[in-house]
């Protein structure tokens, strides 16, 4: 079973600041970590490999320093790592990102299962996994909390929904995104860390992924960030006091004023 895991290097802090001029994230001085949800994706991929054989390839799009995130995945059992990195990819929204990752997965030769975390800590959209599936025309399941079985050309997965979980059979090849309930990621071994340190990270540029360059990076991104700001919290609550009758009258009056009644 050949598995591709999509990972992302993100700032290791939940208090992410935005540059007011460029509307992009300020990454300087913030420790970079592997997106926590992706660590569950890597662990699940390694477990699938241990149970069924095959290889685990970790894939990320990012600046050269994102190679560190790939090495971390190698230290806990991934077999090879590919970094998709080029100035042409900069400024990508989820559509351009998923297009680029899908192109890389095609270049890898496809996969039986593509696994991603349910969302990233910085972007928080949860869109890239499903969009990769659409680009590759593959079925997908999001918020997977358990892979019950993986044989006979299908996965049986449990998928978290608001009030419980669904059990789905999904034919392979497919894409799944996972939640933290799925496993308890292992810590690396010393030998794993040392091997990962020496491992060569394959780097692909835009030209390695085909010539549809308009669909990469900023030019391939219909999402325009016009402004970013923390919404101001305005306290507008009003306590209505008095007897019950007075309170009802006052409330009806208020609602009429507001045009609700």
């Amino acid at each position: 079973m050949n598995i591709v895991v999509l990972i992302k290097q993100v700032p290791g802090s939940t208090e992410i600041k935005v540059d007011p001029k460029t509307n992009t994230l300020i990454r300087d001085g913030v420790e970079a970590i592997v997106n926590p949800f992706d660590t569950y994706a890597v662990e699940e991929a390694v477990r699938l490999k241990e149970a069924n054989g095959g290889t685990v390839t970790v894939l990320t799009m990012g600046p050269p320093q994102a190679a560190e995130a790939l090495k971390q995945a190698l230290s806990v059992g991934a077999d090879r790592a590919i970094l998709v990195s080029d100035r042409a990819f900069a400024g990508a929204d989820t559509l351009a990102t998923s297009f680029t990752l899908a192109a890389a997965i095609r270049k890898i030769g496809g996969a039986d299962v593509v696994i991603a975390g349910k969302q990233t800590l910085d972007g928080d959209t949860g869109q890239v996994g499903p969009e990769v599936a659409m680009h590759l025309k593959l079925p997908f399941a999001t918020y997977v909390k358990k892979i019950e079985s993986a044989d006979g050309g299908k996965l049986r997965v449990e998928r978290l929904v608001e009030d419980g979980y669904e059990v789905l059979d999904i034919p392979t090849p497919c894409v799944i995104t996972v939640v933290k309930e799925i496993n308890d990621p292992r810590l690396p071994s010393l030998r794993g860390i040392m091997a990962a340190k020496k491992a060569e990270i394959v780097t692909w540029s835009a030209s390695d992924l085909g010539d549809d360059v308009k669909r990469f990076g900023l030019s391939g991104s219909p999402t325009q960030v016009v402004e970013t700001y923390v919404p101001e919290r305005v306290k507008t609550g009003e306590m209505i006091t008095g007897t019950v009758e007075q309170q009802v009258d006052r409330l009806v009056e208020k609602l009429k004023e507001a045009g609700v009644l």
């Binding site: 292992r186 810590l187 690396p188 071994s189 010393l190 030998r191 794993g192």
Partner: peptide
């Protein structure tokens, strides 16, 4: 866990 992490190999 310490064994799996190679700490006994040191």
């Amino acid at each position: 866990v310490m064994g799996d992490s190679d700490l006994f190999r040191v």
